[in-house]
Simulated scan of single mutants.
Amino acid sequence: MASSVDPRFGAALREFRQRRGLSLRLLGQLAHRSKSHLHELEAGLKAPTADTARHLDRVLEAGGVLARLADAPVDHAAEAGELRARVAASDVSGDMLDRIEQGVDDLASSYPTMAPADLLPLVRRHLAYVGRLLDGRVTLGQQRRLLVAGGWLAVLRATVHIDLRQRTAAVAHLRAAHDLAEHAEHGEIQAWCLETRAWDVLTQGDYRAALDLSRQAQRVAPKGSSARIQATAQEARAWARIGDIGATRQALDRVERLTANLPVPERAEHHYRYDPAKAAAYTATTLAWAGDPGAEQVARAVLTELDPYGDGGARPRRSASARLDLGLALVAAGQPDEAVAVGAQAVTSGRVVPSNWWRAAELLAKVEQSGAPEAATLRDACMEYAPGR
């Protein structure tokens, strides 16, 4: 099945617009399109119609590039299938393994700060390069390094697709990542595939499936690995959504033991390297979901650490999530006015990715249930910034 949204279209639209020195507002005036619609096209949240693509092509003098991209959607399942098919008979060539592995780490470290629609084309290019090298010749040791690099890239690509709510593509690349990891006998990537699936089904409301997948991930993950810690934290969040406070606390206690002597990794922003700050952020989320009275204090401490100056900090996506956690805790504590303020900050930051939007919607629902008159402010912000509006 072909995906209806090709991330290359958004990237190309942004490039041609910037070449002309146009803001989204000015392009909207020239093209007679709304600023929000153009933003959704650039962010990969909405697919262009053929007429819109041809019209923007003329306005931006793009030489037919936009029209061709609109007519050539990416078949994510076919791309992932092709990569998986190569695994069984890989004669790899190339002397760029160190640079490839560095690129994997760079992309995984960009995940917390880069918009998903901007990160996706970069991951696709690196993954395609690894796929081409899988057709060459190299030693068995070098082949395994390529398979591992491809596995990390595939699971990262699946994660970005989940962020963009492109689940068909995400499923295809999680399968590809699992096959690559299995061929390379890499338990941690296999565990991350399970943990990523757990997060995806949790956001869709299937908490029992999330619990089962997070436990599977813990069994597969190597002892002491970041994947095992993350999967344990994911179990705690599943218990919180189920409403079992005792099991939630027990899982959080296990996370605390696993991270007690955990050093800060060399690249703490790396998505697949667990750092102590992430443990605190996950605890805040879990306690807020569980309705635990201690959630407010933990959430405030996390937000102060992430965003001491109120400008988003070094990890703006995590800061936005921390504000949603604090807002939920504040509603439970009978402070809906402040909950609205921090919730609106999170929403208007533009850093709440589509897959996390349900958390903003949940906060809005809780504020409205409280009867607070300030709820209208948060509703207006949600209406303006909602993905795919």
Rank of each mutant, 00 (worst) to 15 (best):
P336S: 15
A251P: 11
T196I: 04
T248A: 01
L211T: 13
A236C: 10
T285I: 09
A2F: 12
A53M: 05
L133P: 00
E368M: 07
A217S: 14
A365K: 06
V331F: 02
D71N: 09
A158I: 05
L378D: 03
R157Y: 02
D106S: 13
A181I: 03
K35M: 11
R359S: 03
P7R: 08
D244L: 04
F9S: 01
T248C: 13
R86I: 03
E101P: 00
A341Y: 07
R58C: 01
L303V: 08
M1T: 14
E384I: 03
R58E: 15
R8N: 11
L328K: 08
M383F: 00
R379T: 12
A290S: 12
L133G: 13
H32D: 15
I245L: 11
A288K: 07
H76Y: 13
G294Y: 05
K46R: 09
P121I: 12
D106C: 06
A381K: 06
L164F: 01
Q142T: 10
R54A: 12
T377Q: 09
V160I: 11
L147T: 05
I162Y: 12
R219L: 12
R167Q: 14
A70S: 14
T139W: 02
L41M: 10
Y274M: 13
H186Y: 11
L120I: 06
Y385E: 13
S93R: 09
T203M: 09
L287G: 04
A149T: 07
G350V: 04
E79S: 10
H37A: 09
T52K: 04
L213W: 11
P222K: 06
Q142P: 03
A341R: 11
W357H: 03
L122C: 01
R254M: 05
E374K: 10
A290G: 03
Y272T: 12
Q143P: 02
G371H: 08
L363P: 07
L133K: 10
W192Y: 12
T49E: 00
R58N: 10
A88P: 00
A12T: 08
A62Q: 10
V201F: 02
I229C: 12
A279K: 06
R84L: 02
A376K: 10
V342W: 06
H173K: 07
S110L: 09
L194T: 13
A260Q: 13
Y111W: 09
R237T: 07
A339K: 07
H39G: 03
D179S: 12
E101W: 03
A344V: 11
W289C: 12
A240M: 04
I245P: 01
Y309G: 15
S3T: 13
W192A: 01
D105C: 04
V138H: 12
A295S: 12
G294V: 02
S3P: 03
D244K: 03
Q216G: 15
D95P: 05
K366L: 11
